[in-house]
């Protein structure tokens, strides 16, 4: 089976800080980070009214589909995607071939500014994800090594 992604508190804090700063520096509305399987890793900005779970899943689907198209025309991947709306725009980029960074912005910002800030944030995020991958290699205590059949059954008792 494939290995699982484990995100610890320390790295999460670093990621969150980078996303928070990206929201400010890019004048963005929302920034979120998703893994390629559609799991939301972190989000910042005006997320209260947003269905971030669905956004994460659809973004990953979007990237997967675009990646499939890339392969068909002999490209490795399209590392940046831009969707232009009437009010809000979406900038999607792939970081280190493993996670997806999404920035939602409106007329208060511009594609140029977003791209500039995303570039810097991507480098920093990539470093954090290097640490996360290294940690994943280490044998560590998982909360799930200890679960019992009763624990699992109790989820389905209702």
């Amino acid at each position: 089976m494939s290995q699982q992604t484990v995100l610890y508190e320390a790295e999460y804090e670093l990621i969150k800080k980078i996303c928070d700063r990206l929201v400010r520096e890019a004048n963005a509305k929302v920034v979120f980070l998703v893994d390629k399987n559609g799991q939301l890793i972190a989000s910042s900005g005006e997320t209260a009214h947003l269905d971030t779970t669905s956004l994460a899943s659809l973004t990953a689907g979007n990237i997967a589909a675009t990646g499939g198209i890339a392969k068909l025309i002999n490209e490795k991947e399209f590392s940046q995607i831009f969707h232009e709306g009437e009010r809000d725009n979406l900038h999607i980029s792939i970081i280190g071939q493993r996670v997806i960074l999404v920035v939602i912005f409106d007329q208060r910002s511009s594609l140029g500014l977003v791209r500039l800030r995303v570039r810097k944030a991507s480098e920093e995020l990539n470093q954090v994800f290097n640490v996360i991958s290294q940690k994943a290699e280490l044998p560590g205590a998982s909360p799930f090594a200890e679960i019992s059949d009763d624990d699992i059954d109790s989820l389905f008792s209702s």
């Binding site: 559609g38 269905d51 779970t53 669905s54 899943s57 659809l58 689907g61 589909a65 909360p143 799930f144 200890e146 679960i147 624990d151 699992i152 109790s154 989820l155 389905f156």
Partner: peptide, 30 residues
């Protein structure tokens, strides 16, 4: 549950995927 998303054709055939997030409860605080 979260929102169910269906990416379907006009004739209701699945075009890409359906997606439904579910919470089952907690195990060991997770």
């Amino acid at each position: 549950k979260g929102k169910m998303i269906s990416l379907a054709t006009e004739t209701e055939r699945t075009l890409f995927f359906d997606f439904l997030p579910l919470s089952l409860g907690e195990i060991r605080g997770f």
